[in-house]
């Protein structure tokens, strides 16, 4: 090979002789290790554990009273599983912002079969699903979401409280 390297303008100075070796290796690898450790940190507590998938728990007094074939949420179960969060947000906006100019109105939810329900987490949902730990939390914990509904909303509705 030529001692001088060329381009279209002609010959240049000799190629600089730089020793071929890995520079600053210890800093680079130390940094990489620290980085990987930090990335892995959140996963470490769960290593080797199997977390059982949530099981639907419907054994609350209100649901047990309903005949097996009539046990139906306000919407089909599959739909509820996928969309309950958006539905609750819609309910919330409809109820709280009732009568605001241009806002959607209504304190009631009309199911496709025509049945009307009070749009209320505490007084409608939690009335049947009074087993919050088993019904709500189990699944939320499994998928690691932490909705803050219960920071304000109570787990026991008016009807249940009065029944007691």
């Amino acid at each position: 090979m030529d001692e001088k390297y060329k381009n279209e303008f002609g010959a240049f100075a000799p190629r600089p002789q730089v020793e071929k070796k890995f520079y600053n290796g210890k800093y680079i690898f130390a940094g990489l290790i620290v980085f990987l450790a930090m990335v892995a940190l959140p996963f470490l507590p769960n290593v080797g554990k199997t977390i059982p998938p949530p099981v639907r728990q419907l054994d609350t007094p209100v649901i047990q009273k309903i005949a097996e074939k009539d046990r139906q949420c306000i919407m089909p179960t599959e739909w509820m599983r996928a969309n309950h969060m958006q539905m609750l947000i819609d309910w919330r906006d409809n109820v709280v912002r009732t009568n605001e100019k241009g806002a959607p109105n209504g304190r009631y939810f009309k199911a496709p079969d025509g049945q009307k329900f009070l749009a209320s987490l505490t007084n409608t949902c939690m009335e049947c699903h009074s087993n919050k730990e088993k019904f709500c939390d189990q699944c939320h914990n499994y998928v690691a979401v932490a909705p803050n509904c219960w920071g304000c909303h109570l787990t026991e509705g008016k009807k249940l409280a009065e029944a007691k």
Binding site: T122, N123, C152, L154, E156, G157, L160
Partner: peptide
């Protein structure tokens, strides 16, 4: 009171 939420 069970008919109304509390606050955060």
């Amino acid at each position: 009171y069970p008919g109304y939420p509390t606050r955060e």
